[in-house]
């Protein structure tokens, strides 16, 4: 059982109902005509692939069908938070070693067994 908290349904729902939709917080250039090819190419095609904290978009495909954001750890696969579109993440940095050990129990909830 792997469950994800949907911020719109306001409850934990089964992973099967969701789809990942790639990196979140990608801002479309305000004036595309003024972009260089490189800037436009970066915007269209190039995505971060960090080791650690990553902000992603997911969609509750078989539920409320809304997109929302997920902060996920790409090493442990732990989902650290979910938040609505338009909001900013509260988890933006890796926890320190001490905090990480203390919060292992919480983190495990979001990891596939």
């Amino acid at each position: 059982m792997f469950q994800i908290y949907c911020p719109y349904c306001e409850e934990l729902r089964e992973e099967e109902e969701f789809h990942p939709k790639g990196q979140a917080h990608i801002v479309r250039p305000a004036d595309p005509e003024a972009c260089s090819d490189e800037e436009w190419g970066d915007y269209l095609f190039f995505r971060d692939n960090p080791r650690g904290i990553h902000h992603e978009m997911w969609v509750h495909a078989v539920g409320c069908r809304k997109f929302f954001n997920v902060t996920r750890h790409t090493v442990s696969y732990a989902i650290l938070e979910t938040y609505k579109i338009g909001e900013q993440p509260s988890v933006t940095a890796e926890p320190s070693a001490g905090e990480a050990a203390a919060s292992t129990a919480d983190v495990r909830q979001g990891v596939r067994a």
């Binding site: 349904c9 729902r13 089964e14 099967e16 109902e17 078989v62 539920g63 409320c64």
Partner: peptide, 10 residues
């Protein structure tokens, strides 16, 4: 009432 996966449909 919830919208969810039912068998292999929804």
């Amino acid at each position: 009432g919830v919208n969810t996966v039912f068998a292999k449909a929804t």
